[in-house]
Structure formats: C-alpha cells, structure tokens
Amino acid sequence: MENKKKIELYRSMLLIRHFEEKLTELCRIERKLPGMVILCTGQEAVAAGTCAALEKDDVIISNHRSHGHLLAKGAEPNTVMAEIFGKKTGCNKGKSGTLHIAVPEVNALCTTTVVGGGIPIAVGTAFAQQYKKRRQVTVCFFGNGAADEGSFHESLNMAALWNLPVIFVCENNVYSGAQRMEEHTKVKDIAARAAGYAMPGVVVDGNDAEAVFKATTEARLRCLAGEGPTLIECKTYRWRGHGEADHQAYQPKDEIARWMERCPVKKIERELLAAGAISNQEISELEESIAKIVEDAVRFAEESPWPAPLEALDDVYV
C-alpha cells in the first residue's frame, strides 16, 4: 500500500477513535446524550480498511455499531454528532439518533439495529446495482451475532445464486450481547459459513487496516468482474460494552487489556513511523486537527436547536 493511502487510512481511524472517545466522555462523565450510545472503539480498522477500498458511489449498509462505518465512508462529523444528540440539524433531523443513522449523500443508505436486518437490504441494493449495470458494489457490515439470524442465511444464498456485487463484512468482535462466540455458535470462523453458499469466505485480522483494505479490494474486484459476493470475517474486539450502559462484567479484564495492546490505531501508527512515512511531529499535528474536528462537531451539536415537537409528524410518507 502506498504511504499516502496508508496515512489516509490512519487519519480515518484516528477520527473514529477521537469521535468515539468523545462520546464516551459525553455519555459517562457529562451525561449529555439523550439516549443509548453504541461505540466501535477498538474496531476502527474494519470500518476504515473496508471503506478505503470503496468508491463514493458504492453503498454501505450498517448495523447498530455504525459510527465508524459512516465516518469512514465520508459522513460529516458535525451532522452525525448532531444526530446522536437528537438535534434538528442532525443528518436525519433527530429521527434516528445513534442507532439508525442514514447518510444517503455518501451512499450510507441504511443503518439498522435489527440484528441481521441489513443483510437482506444489501442484497437489494446489490441487485439494483447489477440491474442497472453499474460498476458499483454494496458492503454490508454486521456482527458475529447477526450470522446466527435467518436473514443472514437467506441473503447469502440469494446473493450467491444471482452473483450479486455485495461484500458481506462480518465484524467479529468476539461478543454477541453478553455471549462469547463459543457460547453462541459452534463454528470457529463465521467465514466458514460461506462454503455453504459456494462463495469465498476470507478471515482477516480485523485490527490490521491494511489487511482489511486488501481483502475488500479483492472482493470488490470479484464483484465487478461478475463473480459474485464474498464473505469477509474481520477478527477484532469490542473494547467497550454492547452499549455505554453495559457493565461489561462478563468481559475478563485481562482479555480487554490484551486486545488493547493490539490497538489497531497504534499498529498502523507504528508501521508508518517505522517506514519513515510520518514523523512524531506530524502525528501530533494530525491528532490535534482531528481533536478539533470532533470538538467542533460537539459544539455544533450542542449549539443546534432541538426539533419542534410537531416535526415528529413529518417524513413518514413521501
């Protein structure tokens, strides 16, 4: 990977990390957020690595742990933050909150919190891309828990049958709610299920952004060559709880610590420093500029007005 591209990847991950850490602060310390918050801290490499392999016109379908996906796809931090605050200026006018953010401007067309609910929709967007003969693909993000849903199996079967240009990205963060992987399925790798639908199943280190980027790039080329879908399983770890209200008592402390040592942001940072692609000084400057973007987003959200109650009645029908 070229250094320039890799620095972009690093920047994308840093933005997600700062954004999520700020939300933890707002949520736990200041109690400023109106509702549930679900974070992807520690999983930045999956979102950034995948989206770096996509074009703007490519579609992403996301799940409840969506902030990283949206920011990596190019969503504006200001309007995403305002949406998490429930403000009128939010990208969905306060209708979706943290859980269901859609940013059609960057083709992030659906975030769904029904576990597995986005997978059939990704089949639909990929079908439309194929039907309209566009050189575009759909990426569907979901967790290891979603791979137990019927919708996963129906969708992979249909997508493979019709050679649809869709990449199923399973973000395996070890947990499904409070259940560890071995408590919710007998398979060691979700990617093994791809064989049941005659599609390639790939396991990658989900904390290695470059590896995720390469796997997605290959899968995208397969899609564009008319060779159909790929299931990519990114092995990563959920640093935070399911949501910020989660006590996390079921996650062993030493396990969390071990995975934090494998921090995906630090990993790419070390690699860039070792390659001489970036200096410590440049890293500090980058961190500062990103911290400012996030501070600005919070200020924008805080200063934005609430929606008027009657706006609840808008946008149900066209």
């Binding site: 939010g90 990208c91 969905n92 006018k93 306060g94 209708k95 979706s96 269901h100 859609a102 059609p104 067309l109 659906c110 975030t111 808008d314 946008d315 149900v316 029908y317 066209v318």
Partner: peptide, 8 residues
C-alpha cells in the same frame, strides 16, 4: 424513510 429524515 422516517429514520432518514425524509431523505430516502
């Protein structure tokens, strides 16, 4: 559609 704030 509702969740998109009327965008989709």
């Amino acid at each position: 559609r509702y969740l998109s704030g009327g965008k989709s």
